[in-house]
């Protein structure tokens, strides 16, 4: 694994992604989701909303890095809030 040049933050990041994927799979098995329409302009499943949330979170982080001098942790907190809103009402 050393050739992959791991660091603690990236390891935590990928562990987080893996936990989310396993969790979503378990959630799907326990209670299969139905496509629905929330505040987003398209009907989405739970997995769609997760994908939209992760992709938009990546762009929010990039925007913070490119346009502001604010600590990246602020972007992460905002993204977590955004993900919760999106998963619940998206």
């Amino acid at each position: 694994m050393a050739w992959m040049s791991w660091t603690l933050p990236t390891a935590l990041f990928f562990t987080g992604i893996a936990v989310i994927l396993v969790g979503m799979t378990a959630w799907q098995i326990i209670s299969p989701c139905v496509e629905r329409r929330g505040f987003l302009p398209l009907a989405t499943t739970r997995g769609d909303r997760l994908f939209i949330g992760l992709l938009s979170s990546a762009f929010i982080h990039l925007a913070f890095v490119a346009l502001t001098d604010v600590n990246i942790a602020v972007a992460t907190v905002l993204c977590v809030l955004w993900m919760i809103i999106l998963m619940r009402w998206g």
Binding site: M4, S5, W6, T7, P9, T10, F13, F14
Partner: peptide, 10 residues
Amino acid sequence: LMTVVNYSVQ
């Protein structure tokens, strides 16, 4: 891809 992510912060 994971390796590229690791490289990008070092």
